[in-house]
Amino acid sequence: AKTRNSFSTKINDLVAKYREVDEEFFEELEEVLISADVGVHAVMELIEELEMEVKRRNIKDTKEVREVISEKLVELYYGEDDEEEVEGLHEEEGDLTVYLFVGVNGVGKTTSIGKLAYQLKQEGKKVLLAAGDTFRAGAIEQLDAWGKRVGVDVIKHNAGSDPAAVVYDGIQAAKSRKADVLICDTAGRLQNKVNLMNELSKVKKVISREIPEAPHEVLLTLDATTGQNAMSQAKTFSEATDVTGIVLTKLDGTAKGGIILAIRRELEIPVKLVGLGEGVNDLETFDAHAFVYGLFADMIDDYEEETEKG
């Protein structure tokens, strides 16, 4: 709970810096959250809860109001449960670990795989990639280029071949070469394409058939620039492949990716990694505190500018 306290302090500072907690404050809070793609329902619920709590406790003192607000904001991601461990990737000690990347088109699956492979290799692991996107033009070459860049082998078939077969070969190769981690790329697909989603389920089944506990993570890659549709992506991909975690990419832009708060609340899927650029090093573990704080960064900046101007 130590981290939560330090986070609360931060949020307290934020609210303290801010002017009075009045209607204008709530309005601005609403705008900040909506413009971060948190989602209009979640935001209105939160604001309502806040206003009620303030009223119920008959809080007049602004300091106390601040406390209520920071409590609620922390709960936005974690819910009311007290567990707050950083959720890393599951690893199979001393045995082959398999990760499967899934998601819609162009979100950053292949790039994130390249970065993750680099990270794992730096940790001294033997990594292998499987080029399961046999559909998109240049997809195999792209993964291959990443493999070369970070120095790991890529198992691939020809363009147009069966993705399940590539992944199957990947597993056999990983076993015989005694690799620690196999990461499987898949073609991007929109979640409303039933055939393509079935194909993905099949890929996953092939993995589980070979290694019952695998895949050890099914990572849904979400683009932070995406709006409310990300919820539908999370639901449908979960139904098809039992997603275990989210990789939130492109957070180096101006989009905030606030929809992951709603996804966490509704579907209980945690974010495990975030993408912060196109380089090998631009992949980090998710820090919920930094994330929630980041949602309000603009609110502070605006205010600080205002006060500076006088």
């Binding site: 909506i34 413009s35 971060a36 793609d37 819609v104 162009g106 683009d223 620039t225 995406t226 709006g227 409310q228 549709n229 990300a230 832009g253 101006t254 989009a255 905030k256 929809i259």
Partner: peptide
């Protein structure tokens, strides 16, 4: 532009 873009579309 990706049709799934959220609030950030205006900035971009």
């Amino acid at each position: 532009v990706d049709a799934m873009t959220g609030q950030d579309a205006v900035n971009v």
